[in-house]
C-alpha cells in the first residue's frame, strides 16, 4: 500500500507529460496573383501543444523562410516583414471545446488565439486537424492572412504582383516533450 501511494505521488509528472513539441515544423505560404505566384517555406517552426490544458503556441523566425529567388527573400525581410525589427511570427491560443485526443484518426479542431506578424497582433480563430500517429501528434493547419491586418504595406507598383491575402499551410509532427 505504501508503495502504491508513493507511486501515486510521483505519477502526476507522468500523467501531465502531455506536452508535444517540435522545432522543425513546416510552414509554407503562397501569394497568388495573375502575374506571379510567390511562395516560401520554413522548416524551423517551433510548436508546443499541451493536450491537458488545450493550449498551443507557435513561433517561426521570419528569416527562416526561403524563396525561389534570393532577391525575393531579401525584399521579404527588408521591405515587407522588417525582420530586423520583428524577427518572429508568433501564435498562442487555446483549443476550443477540446476533449481527449483519440488514439487514432484525425480530429478537426478550432483554436482561438492571438496571432502576431510584423509586430501586429490579431485575435482570431484557426481551423486545423490533430492526429495521433504512434508516439507523434500530427498538426495540420491552413489559414489566410490579410497583409493589411498586420500593417504590412504593399506599394502601388507591386500591388499586382503580391496578393492581399496570403495562404499559409502549417504541418508539424510533434513528439512528447
Amino acid at each position: 500500500m505504501k508503495h502504491i501511494l508513493l507511486l501515486l505521488a510521483f505519477l502526476p509528472a507522468a500523467i501531465f507529460a502531455q506536452q508535444f513539441v517540435t522545432r522543425e515544423g513546416n510552414v509554407h505560404f503562397l501569394s497568388e496573383t495573375p502575374i506571379e505566384d510567390i511562395e516560401a517555406t520554413s522548416s524551423e517552426a517551433s510548436v508546443i501543444l499541451d493536450l491537458e490544458t488545450g493550449r498551443v503556441a507557435v513561433q517561426v523566425p521570419i528569416l527562416s523562410f526561403h524563396f525561389e529567388k534570393a532577391l525575393m527573400e531579401e525584399h521579404f525581410n527588408e521591405n515587407y516583414m522588417e525582420s530586423g525589427t520583428y524577427p518572429k511570427a508568433k501564435f498562442t491560443g487555446t483549443l476550443r471545446d477540446f476533449g481527449a485526443l483519440p488514439e487514432s484518426g484525425a480530429v478537426e479542431v478550432m483554436v482561438d488565439g492571438s496571432f502576431e506578424v510584423h509586430g501586429v497582433s490579431v485575435d482570431r480563430p484557426f481551423n486545423g486537424t490533430l492526429e495521433r500517429k504512434g508516439d507523434e501528434v500530427m498538426l495540420i493547419c491552413r489559414f489566410d492572412v490579410r497583409t493589411e491586418d498586420h500593417e504590412i504595406p504593399i506599394p502601388a507598383v507591386v500591388r499586382d504582383n503580391i496578393a492581399e491575402v496570403i495562404a499559409v499551410d502549417i504541418k508539424a509532427s510533434l513528439v512528447a516533450r
Binding site: 501531465f16 502531455q18 506536452q19 513539441v21 517551433s46 508546443i48 499541451d50 491537458e52 490544458t53 493550449r55 503556441a57 513561433q59 498562442t92 516533450r177
Partner: peptide, 10 residues
Amino acid sequence: VAQDDMMDFF
C-alpha cells in the same frame, strides 16, 4: 506549473 511552463519552450 504546466500552464506556465509552456512558453519556456521557446
